[in-house]
């Protein structure tokens, strides 16, 4: 049953000129097909951890296996990067080519895939993310959400088993944000791609299978979103917010209203409040 795709044992990473490690003793296992969200205040090491997963950085301590591979040699690094794609925060700064489909092909071209195969996979990937109609467009004409979908297509074309989204919705408008988040959820559900979703939005994190909260390079809290968010005080102490409804529930509880644990959405709150009396 257990089919771990990311295995981290005491992973540490320290930037060369830094006084303290950015990632400290992180141990965790991610199962294939899981949707894992990572929260944490600015500078808590989320992006550093993401780059370790993608072999853009190599651990300075501990072991990290991604898709069964530890990035030791250069070739292993490229294999890790292929199997673990990455979508960054700024949609403008990760699109390389001047035409959507060319950008989508970039990764496969780098891998030396034959042209016909690239063509096929690019068409598939663009269709998958709903950008097939814009295949010939210039990325500068697209909205932020569309650019992020192109970035996802570029990663998808390489047939990864994991996709890491590093605050990929942070710069988008609400519509684009929902689009990209829903896309990630669908890829997770329908294609079984493992998703690591780094975010500052509690509402997104609440929908993950599992939630990790990072603080000063360590995993401070981990578990199902409901369990994690239930610890309202600890979360606040880690410099984070909890979903509005959890805050409201906590305040109502303190005021003597008897509410069950784990209310996260407006709908759930409405149902529970109607059940009172």
């Amino acid at each position: 049953m257990s089919n771990p795709i990311i295995e981290a044992h005491n992973v540490c990473f320290q930037y060369e000129d830094a006084a303290a490690p950015a990632v400290k003793d992180v141990s965790l296992t991610v199962e294939a097909g899981e949707f894992v969200a990572i929260l944490g205040r600015n500078g808590s090491g989320k992006s550093t951890f993401a780059k370790l997963l993608n072999a853009l950085l190599l651990p300075t301590g501990g072991t990290l296996r991604v898709n069964g591979l530890e990035a030791r040699t250069e070739d292993d690094c490229y294999e890790v990067r292929r199997s673990c794609g990455m979508v960054f925060q700024n949609p403008d700064n990760q699109i390389v080519a001047t035409i959507v489909e060319e950008d989508c092909a970039f990764g496969l071209e780098n891998l030396g895939t034959p042209p016909e195969e690239i063509r096929r996979r690019v068409d598939e990937a663009l269709l998958d993310v709903g950008m097939a109609e814009q295949a010939g467009a210039s990325p500068s004409m697209l909205s932020g959400g569309q650019k992020q979908r192109v970035a996802v297509a570029g990663v998808l074309a390489m047939r990864p088993r994991i996709i890491v989204f590093d605050e990929s919705t942070a710069m988008l408008d609400p519509v684009g944000r929902r689009d990209v988040f829903e896309l990630a959820r669908r890829l997770n559900r329908e294609e079984g791609i493992t998703i690591v979703w780094i975010t500052h939005f509690m509402e997104e994190a609440a929908l993950a299978d599992r939630l990790l909260v990072m603080d000063r390079g360590r995993v401070a809290l981990a578990g199902a979103p409901r369990e994690v968010f239930a610890q309202v005080d600890r979360i606040m102490k880690l410099g984070l917010d909890v979903p509005e409804m959890m805050k409201l529930a906590a305040r109502l509880r303190r005021a003597g209203v008897k509410l069950p644990e784990g209310i996260m959405t407006v709908d759930e709150m409405a149902v529970e409040l109607c059940r009172l009396k």
Partner: peptide
């Protein structure tokens, strides 16, 4: 570009 396995022109194909 690194994240998408870019490593210069050697061994690169074009669509």
């Amino acid at each position: 570009m690194d994240a998408r396995c870019y490593r210069g022109g050697a061994g690169r194909t074009r669509m």
